[in-house]
Amino acid sequence: MSAPAAFLLRFALPVGIGAALLYAATLSLDPYSLTILQFVGINVILAVSLNITNGFTGLFSLGHPAFMTIGGYVTAILTMPATRKTAMLRDLPSILAAHEWPFAASLTAGGLVAALAAVIVGIPVLRLRGHYLAVATLGLIFIVQSFAVNLPGITRGALGLAGLPPVTNVWWVYLVLVLTLLTCWRVKHSSLGRTMLAIRENELAAASLGVKVARTRVLSFALGAFFAGVAGGLWAHLVTLIAPGSFSILLGFQLIVMVVLGGTGSIAGAAIAAVVLTLSTEWLRPIEEAAGLFGASQIIVAVGVILVLIFRPSGLFGTAEPNVFGAFARRRRHAQSTP
């Protein structure tokens, strides 16, 4: 699959079908279901991008909510009408305050700033391994939240930025989703992706073969952060609000669960787990409300997670990609799953 043409063809058909389905959805679904559809898409973006960091490279990061917060705030500040900005955000540099950016540019900027933050944080933090990295990235969530709360001149403090233009729609979400999948797929099946997997499997061996371990780690961390930042921007303009507590540790946990359930390193696995978990929480909700047992749905999901971990510890797909995509494209390729 080196030829870009063949690669695009593999994606063109599913994307076309997907677009048609989405169009049908926009015509037939009520606003609530459409919103859920968008959150499903955003969660897939998040899970799949977290999979670059956690799945491919084996860095156990919980920091996605931190990057979403950064990306969300940057995007929100950029798209906000200039008149409101100057009134509400006193400490904003005048270059930012005077202009109002288009959504695509704002999203990209949000992603880039998140990625930049990931590089700055990543260079020292990625020297840590396993659990240590997990807790350090968890700490990052607290640190970012503290700044969001305590810099009211830029973030409006605890209140958050409300009344953002509701520009996120199904098309934006799924466009970014396709781009994310495409990027992940290409990365995974490129030399970079193999480098990442090599680091995950045996860092010393990879280093001895000349792999630049530190650089690759930071790169994969930043790549994941970029998409988290973009997803944060999409999220903020879907909810039309971003507050310091918008993206919590709980969300970080849910994302990790998606990656692990899907099979660490499997793009399709992460995507499917994201869809299933997002929808099942929605479906459990009416039951919980009818019974008046608020909190029951979270318990059910958590118990389910433990059961899957016990009975299927390598997740649904391991590192492999199931053949659904191949079948979908009617072009079954054989050696697509990585060793």
Binding site: I256, V257, V303, L309
Partner: peptide, 23 residues
Amino acid sequence: APQVTGFIASLAVAIILENLAVM
């Protein structure tokens, strides 16, 4: 199982305990 598995399981246990208490 890999370390990460236990870590996630412990997060799940935390969520169960907290929600049970709240309920």
